[in-house]
């Protein structure tokens, strides 16, 4: 089996290395992906770089392409993340009461005098608000600096995971219960799709943020697009936060949501 695998892998690899010699040079600005093909017009990325600031007033081109030009793509990526969370729920979650004797000493640090737990708990209590504040900054400032809904959502979810790791899963679940995180994940998708449908009420296409100008009361459509992108990113951040914590909570406790790591 191992020899067969090695032969297959080496055959695939040598074919790919043979194909690599036809690639454009490293860092070439005139390769088909960067500079377009002669006779077939410009590359779409050139238009993105040149027109984004005029059309959307968003300096971070990646955010603009993510939330506006490729809005459908991002919306359904978010739906994929929600579906992954629901799949884990369906695979692992145990809904009946297993009636395991709960280890009391694990929950009360004062009984066994577990100093390590006190030190880690106190440190995390100081650290977690800072992490969450940074996550909110990453979401809200994703237009002007690297960041956005996905990154901020993951950091916000990781702050809850840190709480669950440092104390125990019950403490984290008490802050962010199962009903809340499933609800929040769905609310995120609804916010994203809601911004799309709002545009349709003004007689424009789905996810056409320029139509939202009367709602945001901006002077001109580019600024409205910028505001709508922020709203959409907030929706993405909600879903990602909730699903990251849901995946951790189910994986760490075999789907019982108690007695975790």
């Amino acid at each position: 089996m191992k020899w067969l695998a090695l032969i297959a892998v080496i055959a695939t690899g040598s074919l790919l290395i043979y194909a690599v010699s036809d690639f454009p040079d490293w860092g070439s600005a005139s390769s088909p992906a960067n500079g377009g093909v002669e006779g077939a017009g410009r590359s779409v990325s050139q238009t993105f770089i040149e027109e984004t600031d005029t059309l959307t007033h968003v300096p971070n081109i990646v955010t603009a392409v993510l939330a506006d030009y490729r809005g459908y793509d991002t919306m359904f990526e978010t739906v994929v993340i929600l579906a992954a969370g629901m799949a884990i729920f369906a695979i692992l979650r145990v809904l009946r009461d297993t009636e395991k004797p709960v280890d009391q000493s694990k929950h009360d640090p004062s009984i066994d005098g577990d100093h390590q737990r006190i030190i880690i708990g106190t440190t995390c209590r100081l650290l977690i608000p800072v992490i969450q504040l940074f996550a909110l900054y990453v979401v809200a400032h994703g237009h002007h600096s690297p960041g956005g809904g996905f990154q901020g959502g993951v950091i916000l979810g990781a702050s809850f995971i840190l709480l669950g790791l440092a104390t125990d899963l019950e403490t984290a679940i008490a802050r962010f219960s199962e009903k809340q995180f499933i609800g929040l994940a769905c609310v995120g998708i609804f916010i994203y799709a809601g911004f799309g449908v709002l545009g349709q009420f003004y007689g424009r296409g789905f996810l056409d943020y320029g139509a939202l100008q009367p709602i945001f009361m901006t002077d001109g459509e580019p600024m409205a697009r910028s505001h709508a992108m922020l709203g959409v990113e907030v929706g993405v951040a909600f879903t990602v936060t909730a699903i990251m914590f849901a995946i951790y909570a189910n994986l760490a406790s075999k789907g019982e949501l108690k007695n975790g790591l």
Binding site: A33, G35, S45, F48, I49, D53, I61
Partner: peptide, 13 residues
């Protein structure tokens, strides 16, 4: 307007 060759390609990112 920004010049396309001054910025790396955002689409793969």
């Amino acid at each position: 307007k920004p010049v396309a060759d001054d910025y790396s390609n955002p689409l793969p990112h």
